[in-house]
Amino acid sequence: MSALLEPVFGPFYSNVIGTLVNATQWTIYLSLTAFIGGGLIGLLFTILKISPIGWLRKVATGYIWLFQAIPLLMLLFLIGLGIPSFFHISVAPWVAASVSLTLFTSAYMSEVWRGALESVAKGQWEGGRALGLTFGEILWFIVSPQALRIATPPTVGFMVQVIKGTSMAYIIDYNDLMRWGKKIANSQLDGAEPYIIYPMVALIYFCLCFPLSKWSKSLEKKMATRSR
């Protein structure tokens, strides 16, 4: 890749860009892990949260509340530094980062999805019950398809939050875009001043996030016009 960039940016900057873009893959992997893992766990707790069984609902409420309340930074510290020192085990940075971001994502996702499910009119549940359908059947066949439409724009929008959130993982030595950017900016090399490197890092994050933001917004608009 550096070889391709060289004629345009010169040897130094093509090297820098190559390194940053290469590091970006770890940001993407972490985001995807968090998003998929967080999505699955979030889904589980969303279902628990609206389940007909009282104590399951309480567990879900507690979980969602707890992991929304704990700052992501603290999660990273607790899992990446606290647990290893407390239990005298070693936790690889990527494990700590993945777990933290997954927990963070799951709590916010189930909050969003619960809101979507609840915004589907009560009558839909009652109608389903009148037809003799079970909780699971109503959820799967009647309510979810409607809720999905409502939940999609904020879900896509939250992916942006997740990507931005991964930038904090450098703090526990996860080797992502942010960490490499910081390394290069701190290198004291001529041409690698912070005011050049950080905008480059920002630009890469922007390229990851902006399309998702736009997509989320256009989904929102489409929904608004359809429901009118």
Partner: peptide, 12 residues
Amino acid sequence: VRNTPFIVQLFF
């Protein structure tokens, strides 16, 4: 601002 992480803004 909305599409870049706070930490990058802060360091800049």
